[in-house]
């Protein structure tokens, strides 16, 4: 269970999050949508324990993350897996060492078991037999799959995805969405996806929350969001720009006055 209460964050006195309230239940698949620069990734990074809030509370399984220092956050981070926007694979390591990274660091399993776990995880993301490749030899979609395998290998209870389909062609994006869904159901993990890709949002989420001006504007099931009467939500999910919306509004006003 993740509880976020009145979370605020500013960067160089520019407010990004201005009192976010959000509860995420275990095994839920939440998609956070919102315009570019609205603070979706910043919110995700707070949940991952990578950013400290200016004020507010963020609890995971009842434990407040906000007063914890870098080292004290590590036990909580072991419960969380993160897929970064650019996958953030370690350039100097091959695929095997990238995927096995957390297991090699923990040093609880022997090398044969680690090799087996890596092979299983690569099979789960459809990348079997790629252990020896360097990140530079992989395409964008392949990098995301490896990033996903790396994040999932220590069996986290919560998976965070930062724009998982950005920069991918529609077919690869579809396969990544299916993979996220499959892994969420197969490993029964709480899934939080940050995206502005509505196809991805409808496909992956069983709840969608929209972040607007640093706050959660609406939250609900995908069909509730589609039927939401709020014009900001409607404009966003149908890809109507602010200029087009303003023009449409003025045309409507002119028509009603004549």
């Amino acid at each position: 269970m993740i509880e976020i209460q009145q979370l605020c964050k500013s960067f160089k006195s520019v407010p990004v999050l201005q009192g976010v309230d959000l509860d995420i239940a275990d095994s839920e698949r939440l998609v956070i949508i919102g315009g570019s620069g609205c603070g979706k990734s910043v919110l995700l990074r707070h949940i991952a324990g990578l950013v400290k809030p200016d004020s507010g509370r963020l609890k995971i399984d009842g434990q407040d993350l906000t007063p914890l220092n870098e080292r004290a956050l590590n036990p909580i981070r072991r419960k969380i897996g993160v897929l970064f926007q650019g996958a953030a694979l370690f350039d100097s390591l091959d695929v095997f060492h990238n995927v096995a990274f957390s297991l090699l660091e923990e040093r609880t399993l022997g090398m044969p078991e680690i090799r087996q776990r890596v092979a299983e995880m690569l099979a789960a993301v459809g990348m079997s037999g790629q252990e020896g490749k360097k990140p530079a030899e992989l395409s964008g979609g392949m990098r995301k799959r490896i990033g996903l395998a790396r994040a999932l290998i220590h069996r986290p209870r919560i998976m965070l995805y930062d724009e998982p389909t950005t920069g991918l062609d529609p077919q690869i994006a579809d396969s990544i969405n299916r993979l996220i869904l499959k892994l969420a159901l197969e490993f029964n993990v709480t899934t939080i996806v940050v995206t502005h890709d509505m196809v991805s949002a409808y496909m992956v989420g069983n709840r969608i929350a929209m972040l607007h001006k640093g706050k959660i504007l609406v939250s609900g099931a995908p069909d509730q969001i589609q039927q939401c009467s709020n014009p900001i939500v409607q404009n966003f999910i149908h890809g109507v720009s602010e200029e087009a919306a303003a023009m449409k509004m003025s045309r409507r006003e002119n028509a009603s006055s004549t």
Partner: peptide, 18 residues
Amino acid sequence: GTMRVTEQIDALRSLAVH
């Protein structure tokens, strides 16, 4: 610096490595 700007340092932190 390259690790920092490509989020590799954040990836390290997210994998519970200081």
